[in-house]
Design a protein around this nucleic acid. Sequence first.
DNA 1: TCTGGGGTCCTAGTGCCC
DNA 2: TCTGGGGCACTAGGACCC
Length: 452
Amino acid sequence: MRNAPTILHLDMDAFYASVEQASKPSLRGKAVVVGGLGPRGVVATASYEARVFGVHSAMPMAQARRLAPNAAYLVPRFGLYRSISEQVMALLHELSPLVEPLSLDEAFVDLEAGEVAWDAGSARLVGEKLRADIRAATGLAGSVGLAASKMLAKIASEQAKPDGLVLIEPGTERAMLGPMTVRTLPGVGPATGDHLRRAGITTVDEIAEAGEDELVRLLGKAHGHALYAMALAHDERPVVAEREAKSVSVEDTYDVDIHDRMRVGMEVQRLADRCVRRLRGAGLSGRTIVLKVRRYDFSTLTRSETLRGPTDDPAVVREAAARLLDSVDTTGGVRLLGVGVSGLADYTQEDLFAQAAGEAAEILAEEEAAEPVAVQEAVVERRWPAGHDVRHAEYGHGWVQGSGLGRVTVRFETPWAVEPGRVRTFRVDDPELEPVEPLPLVPTIPVDGVGA
DNA sequence: TCTGGGGTCCTAGTGCCC
DNA sequence: TCTGGGGCACTAGGACCC
């Protein structure tokens, strides 16, 4: 571990919900919950105002609605979140070439490698300037942790939330970590936490006292050694800029369990095609095909098959997935199906699958040709997802507050409006209303003509 | 109350080869 | 021919993370 707090961890506060609040002035200061709106949806992010009611990530949406019936419930807009994430990551890259993104809203930065900080004082200045720059560019708050290792920087940013900065001075780590719960350490989730608790270990100090041998006996080699080291505040993991993907997968949870075996088979084929599209989009191929089935009782099983060489051929992946499905009992119904490919390579073994590839290309071409038709049908149906941006010929830019019974309710406001906008209701097939791309959260050009 | 979607890593069992 | 063991690849499942 280095002796200066020059590893920075950035964590954007309640990211998805904050983006929605920034983009919709009428939701600022209000409880906002972003997640799946279907009967089996879960909460992706809750704003701090919603957390007051006990709503948190991964909670079933139905439960969230009971706890916070008056909150705004919105579907995620990943395209928008991704574009804002790119702005934030660009600011991090100005600090150092060594930036390790963990997700859309989190990253580590090695400030020493960027030669922008070499001691506590300079690190703190860099962290505060970063927070100000993020706010200026996006209007959003991010919390910053600074420490001498990744683990401690992450713990520091957790303590800094919301909208703060915490720096852990080298030499103070053990004393700070000691009284904390074992769940503070990365890699300790509900199962490991329970396991340790049954052994009488609830704090980080107690992990250190138990000793390495005991930890290995309790949790196995890798986990035991790692956890003991973390408890002593030892963490030498470097910030790694470019991580290569190890697998690509897609999965769907169905609103209602599927019982019909034919339908299950068709869904698996559809998922196989989607998975291959993603694989090809990333310029990858893979050797191992994985089928995932979650049954009516939530028991989950996987089946996998390793081919002789990597493929990105839809027909080959479809066939393998179908073979794997043959070995699974789906009586009783399935709630989730998934198809994945691992053992990735950036080339394919053409000779093995040349023939199938020809057929597959036709299949994909047919599907791609078929896709616009499906989109057109969707437009005819006029779906208005809650939270999505729209434009009305007369009233301008707004967002969907809700829809149903042939009506759609729109609030007309832009991200940079000071006052909440007016609400109006239209027929779902109103020709003057159209879906549009989100506006930037912070105006970059003169805003006249786009106002509410 | 009833549990998403996309990943990573680890462990344990098994089969094969030498 | 039989047995044992190390190393490796593969498979399945579990835990964890955001």
